[in-house]
Design a protein around this nucleic acid. Structure first.
Lengths: 121, 121
DNA sequence: TACAATCATGCAAAATTTTGAATATTCAAG
DNA sequence: CTTGAATATTCAAAATTTTGCATGATTGTA
């Protein structure tokens, strides 16, 4: 069976990336794996909404997950994804003719996150 | 005025790439600039449809155009776009777990294209 | 001016995506 | 086996995108 769906699959990848919240999630995961509650706290969005975006990323194969007790940690499925995101930022800047600014991604522990990593202190 | 729309702009770029026909157009233009009639012939799509996809790419800043008489030649607005597309193909393959195949892009002149380059023979 | 060729735009129906809210699932602890 | 915490799923309304088709605009030429 000969298929020719290369452009369809490539388009699906870019479609998964065509959403600001999903891009921010991927940027967070590019630095370190994170559980859903951590992502929820960083993004300031409701948990079901974050889970939905994670489901989209999971179905596209961009992220992988790992359960630890009741927490589920997500990570990038492929390190090359971080490069693709960097290239995307650079080109978006070029096409827009100005420096784009991104919200700061807090590093380390979060007050409003219940996961063990953040409550360790 | 402080903006934080980096992810919005990045998402707009990926959105412009999230379409198989637009991806194929960009792959054609990555090799050489081409007029609308040439793209129409290669893609086997109707001319207004091709013009619409070109308009989407133009509004996103991904392509530039140049008029020569009644013909309009399109080209990539930035060479780094070709690299991004290559990375996208590589990752789409990785995420899909198999070799993706793409329709062959004819090189050289086309029988069914009326532009001077193709009618030179 | 008229005509032909090339390309762009406008518009509406169909399809898809996004978003919010309610509810379901899974796991650990008691 | 019940409860609480973390996460996932479902569903429908709203918003956006896609697609096909008709028409408009621009250029070159007679």
């Amino acid at each position: 069976m000969v298929r020719n769906d290369g452009y369809d699959k490539e388009a699906q990848l870019f479609q998964a990336l065509a959403h600001p919240v999903r891009l921010q999630i991927l940027d967070i995961l590019a630095r370190q794996e994170a559980c859903v509650c951590h992502l929820t706290a960083v993004l300031g969005q409701r948990q079901p909404y974050v889970s939905q975006q994670l489901a989209a990323l999971r179905q596209a194969g961009l992220v992988a997950d790992r359960r630890e007790g009741t927490l589920i940690y997500y990570r990038l499925a492929d390190d090359r994804l971080a490069e693709l995101l960097d290239q995307g930022k650079a080109l978006a800047q070029a096409f827009h003719g100005r420096i784009l600014t991104f919200p700061p991604l807090p590093v380390g522990v979060l007050d409003n996150c219940p996961c063990p990593r953040c409550q360790a202190a």
